[in-house]
């Protein structure tokens, strides 16, 4: 592997200074499960690696005032095991549940998953559906970026020079929401999704859809909300038929590509097929959540 210098700064300020000093030749190291591979493959060739592992606070999860804040260095394994996330943000638990292996989840972080901006990132669609905001710190101080503005395309984000993702803020879901993420992949484990489908449903007492969110990954160049499908469902009774139609509308909003992994036609068909399924699971979870409450 290429030689580089490794740093373990103990504050964000120090890390930002290192990034500023070394410019393009520096990269941030979170869990490293993507970056180390990319360095080995010579897709990336940094001279300086700035590890975030000693910076206090980045590995913390905090739930207060109904808002969840996940530090950038929180591992997928920590999220997987967090009862609170399983209960309240089921779709995020779904996403980390089957991401890579235990070995990968033990070190790979949610911040890394997002900042790497791979179209296949499992947490992307759920975070888009959740309307997450990314808290970023840089030379000019702190700013917050809505997640759908953060992704700029495969491997590209809105992060500027010297900026570091500190945490991900997830607003509370409305009372009685149910959610689900379906990772459609060939294998049951150790696979990238061919398609990622995140759905959040908020029904009213008569099971009419008060609010629906549908976020898709690998259905276009970057994760997005299927807004027309969402609008179609909102205000309608939550029937299978309605969701089937919503699925078809979402197909129309998508622009998946073909590769050796699968065809665009199959991806399109699966968008139409899996959105109703994700909705059905979400709905079950609504009921379960109510029973619990």
């Amino acid at each position: 592997m290429r030689r580089f210098t490794y740093y373990e700064p103990e504050s964000l300020k120090e890390a930002i200074a290192l990034l500023e000093k070394n410019g393009e030749t520096a990269r941030l190291l979170a869990g490293g499960t993507d970056l180390i591979v990319e360095i080995k493959q010579e897709k990336k060739s940094p001279d300086h690696l700035v590890s975030l592992r000693r910076i206090p606070g980045l590995q913390e999860m905090d739930f207060s005032d109904g808002e969840l804040c996940i530090g950038a260095m929180v591992t997928h394994r920590m999220i997987e095991k967090a009862e609170l996330i399983r209960d309240k943000y089921s779709l995020l638990a779904d996403a980390v549940d089957n991401l890579g292996s235990v070995q990968v989840r033990n070190v790979a972080t949610i911040g890394g998953n997002i900042c790497n901006a791979a179209p296949s990132a499992d947490t992307a669609a759920p975070l888009v559906a959740l309307g997450a905001r990314l808290v970023v710190e840089g030379p000019a101080g702190e700013r917050q970026i809505p997640i759908d503005e953060f992704f700029k395309g495969p491997g590209k984000t809105d992060l500027g020079a010297g900026e570091i993702l500190r945490c991900i803020r997830i607003p509370a879901l409305p009372q009685g929401a149910g959610s689900c993420y379906i990772k459609h992949a060939r294998r049951k484990a150790m696979d990238l999704p061919l398609l990622g489908i995140a759905v959040i449903i908020v029904p009213d007492a008569n099971m009419v859809c008060r609010e629906a969110r549908i976020a898709l990954s690998l259905a276009g160049p970057k994760p997005f909300r299927a807004e027309q499908a969402e609008a179609f469902v909102t205000g309608k009774p939550l029937s299978e038929e309605v969701w089937k139609q919503a699925g078809e509308i979402a197909v129309g909003e998508s622009n998946p590509r073909s590769s050796f992994r699968t065809t665009a036609a199959y991806r399109r068909k699966m968008i139409g097929t899996l959105i109703p399924r994700a909705a059905a699971v979400s709905l079950q979870r609504v009921n379960r959540a109510w029973m619990k409450g």
């Binding site: 294998r187 484990a189 150790m190 050796f260 992994r261």
Partner: peptide
């Protein structure tokens, strides 16, 4: 069910264990 080495004009496209899929424990 899943194994296939994809070649494009003679070049292997999926020369890794993520994209050349062999059965895993849960499969």
């Amino acid at each position: 069910l899943m194994e296939e080495l994809h070649l494009e004009k003679g070049k292997v496209l999926n020369g890794n264990f993520l994209d050349y899929k062999i059965m895993t424990f849960p499969d």
